[in-house]
């Protein structure tokens, strides 16, 4: 059995740990609110750009290199993870989802956002084309850089499609690694923006013959890169919000567990101390009895 001193040391160290986890929990909680607000702020833009793209898709002959489906010889995978751990299985879940897609893909090439993903994917035999830390730049700039790189590689034929694996922020409790097709862009839209559009914008009769200025092709050529950039921007926001949520949960659990251990050890410590006192009293009483004798 541990001595009183050892027990005291363990409890003290646990209390320190608990203080740290509690602080991290509160930081994550505060950051979630900001990240959620940023996600909400992006929604009107998502609806509007989805509506524009839908309008162009309706005109039929929408043709653009970024829309072109071709035989897949090499698949790009854009994986978004966090820069830091201590968020439960958040990063590993994302990496696992991406690797399982890579197993079924033709010659997968990885594009990585987030330091944690890079560390984990580097330990496999996968080909890494590029990587960016999640916090390397403000999100709009980072999204632009990633979008440029991806469309360059797509247009040059280095990759024939790109799948995005990022975390969808369902709620503070649930974050789900979600794959979604990024390139070629599907003009009819499988993405959230397009479904939002369908839900909010169907007003028959109002919108038949759209005019385009300068012309449909030029508008499309300007719109598609923006759409790609914005989809990546939105995914960055959601992945970050998810990271904070996952950390909040992980740190809440850690704080609770530390509390439980502290309670248990304190009990053992008190019992040990009491046992020592009892033993001493018995010895004294025993001694006194013997002297009387």
């Amino acid at each position: 059995m541990a001595t009183l001193r050892q027990l005291k040391d363990r409890v003290r160290s646990l209390k320190n740990t608990q203080q740290i986890t509690r602080a991290m929990k509160m930081v994550a909680g505060a950051k979630i609110r900001r990240a959620e607000a940023a996600m909400r702020a992006a929604r009107p833009y998502a609806q509007a750009i989805g509506a524009c793209l839908g309008e162009l898709a309706k005109t039929g002959g929408a043709r653009h290199p970024l829309l072109e489906r071709r035989e897949v010889q090499s698949s790009g995978i854009l994986l978004m993870t966090a820069d830091k751990g201590l968020a439960g299985a958040f990063n590993s879940n994302l990496v696992r989802a991406a690797l399982s897609i890579a197993r079924e893909a033709q010659r997968p090439r990885f594009y990585l956002v987030g330091t944690k993903g890079r560390v984990q994917v580097r330990n496999t035999t996968q080909v890494i084309e590029a990587d960016w830390p999640l916090q390397s730049a403000p999100f709009p700039a980072l999204a632009r850089e990633i979008a440029h790189r991806l469309s360059d590689d797509f247009l040059s034929g280095k990759v024939d499609d790109v799948t995005l694996v990022s975390s969808r922020f369902v709620s503070t409790i649930v974050q789900r690694p979600t794959p979604q097709g990024l390139l070629p862009i599907s003009a009819t839209g499988t993405t959230q923006a397009a479904t939002d559009r369908a839900a909010t914008e169907e007003k028959p009769g109002l919108r038949n013959a759209f005019e385009f200025e300068p012309d449909a092709g030029a508008v499309l050529a300007a719109l598609l890169p923006k759409y790609l950039e914005f989809t990546i921007y939105q995914a960055l926001l959601e992945t970050q919000a998810s990271e904070f949520a996952a950390r909040l949960i992980a740190m809440t659990n850690a704080t609770d567990n530390a509390g439980k251990l502290i309670d248990e050890l304190t009990l053992v410590m008190n019992k040990t101390r009491q046992a020592a006192i009892t033993k001493e009293i018995l010895e004294i009483v025993g001694g006194a009895e013997a002297l009387k004798g």
């Binding site: 013959a209 759209f210 200025e213 300068p214 030029a218 719109l223």
Partner: peptide, 19 residues
């Protein structure tokens, strides 16, 4: 500032999409 010059939109404008 539309692609082909500044343009104004009043209510009941014909549907249009411009850069």
């Amino acid at each position: 500032p539309g692609a082909a010059g500044d343009l104004g939109a009043l209510a009941h404008h014909a549907p249009m999409l411009t850069t």
